[in-house]
């Protein structure tokens, strides 16, 4: 399924081809077909939203991109060349960073310690706290994040701030693609706005953003394209302007004529 978007839709067209593509990707867990023959293209300077009801295969799709799940069949292409994403580290090395739904932050460690956990900057066998703290401020500045102190344990931060820290950690490796799995699921209204704001900033910096969510309303605010999954299959790709009712209809299968659909 190739995303030839309708003429007239206000999409930033990328000159180069997609950064990451999935071609015919299928994945099953036991008897459950989580993904069936899925094609996706992810472009730089673009927010691709992946929506669907519970069990539609959204998180599996994120897992495939993150390197957490290996597809049973189909190909993953980075810059048009087939690759194998068999671990989060492998995906990271290829420029795909993932922020998992549970964030994977360690509550007792402070912000700097969390940002560099597993990738600490050393200096003669010891940790280089000064350098890490400097870089931490740098990446948080880029995100225009508000964090009271980078030396407070993350347990003391709000949900939105924790989300920002998790995104900042993903950005430390200068990835080209950032995959966010349900970033707003546990957030309040204001914090959700903060995270959506963050996503548009990521796009402005040239990242390709894959935003997995089931909160269709939020996504319309930031998504350039919306990929609807239903029962593991791609049900269609919509523009960011598609109305909520049409998306809902596509997600649940209550078909009705949808002008946004190609």
């Amino acid at each position: 399924m190739n995303e030839s978007i309708e003429p007239g839709s206000a999409l930033p067209r990328t000159p180069a081809g997609p950064v990451v593509s999935l071609r015919g990707v299928s994945k099953r867990f036991g008897g459950v077909r989580a993904l069936v023959d899925v094609d996706v293209d992810v472009h730089e300077h673009e927010v691709l939203a992946v929506v669907g009801d519970n069990g539609a295969g959204k998180s599996t799709l994120a897992g495939v991109l993150a390197g957490a799940h290996r597809p049973d069949s189909g190909q993953v292409l980075v810059d048009g060349a087939p690759v194998v994403l068999d671990s989060p580290a492998a995906a990271r090395a290829l420029g795909i960073a993932t922020v998992f739904q549970e964030l994977a932050l360690v509550n007792d460690l402070d912000v700097v310690e969390n940002l560099f956990l597993g990738h600490e900057v050393g200096r003669g066998g010891f940790l280089d706290e000064v350098e890490m703290e400097r870089r931490a401020w740098q990446v948080l500045d880029q995100l225009a994040a508000s964090v009271p102190s980078v030396r407070d344990p993350v347990r003391t931060l709000s949900g939105g701030q924790r989300q920002v820290i998790a995104v900042a950690r993903a950005l430390l490796g200068s990835p080209r693609v950032v995959v966010l799995d349900e970033p707003t699921a546990s957030l309040g209204v204001r914090q959700t706005a903060q995270v959506l704001n963050l996503i548009t900033r990521l796009r402005a910096r040239g990242h390709a953003v894959v935003l997995v969510s089931h909160q269709a309303g939020d996504l319309q605010a930031v998504a350039d394209r919306i990929l609807v999954l239903r029962l593991g299959r791609v049900h269609g790709t919509y523009t960011g302007e598609t109305s909520y009712e049409d998306l809902l209809a596509a997600m649940t299968g209550a078909v009705r004529p949808s002008p946004g659909r190609r």
Binding site: L103, A104, V106, N107, D108, N114, L117, G118
Partner: peptide, 15 residues
Amino acid sequence: RAVGSDRRAALLSGV
């Protein structure tokens, strides 16, 4: 400290 505090998060972080 990371493993003692949150083993799974430490694992996902590459510890």
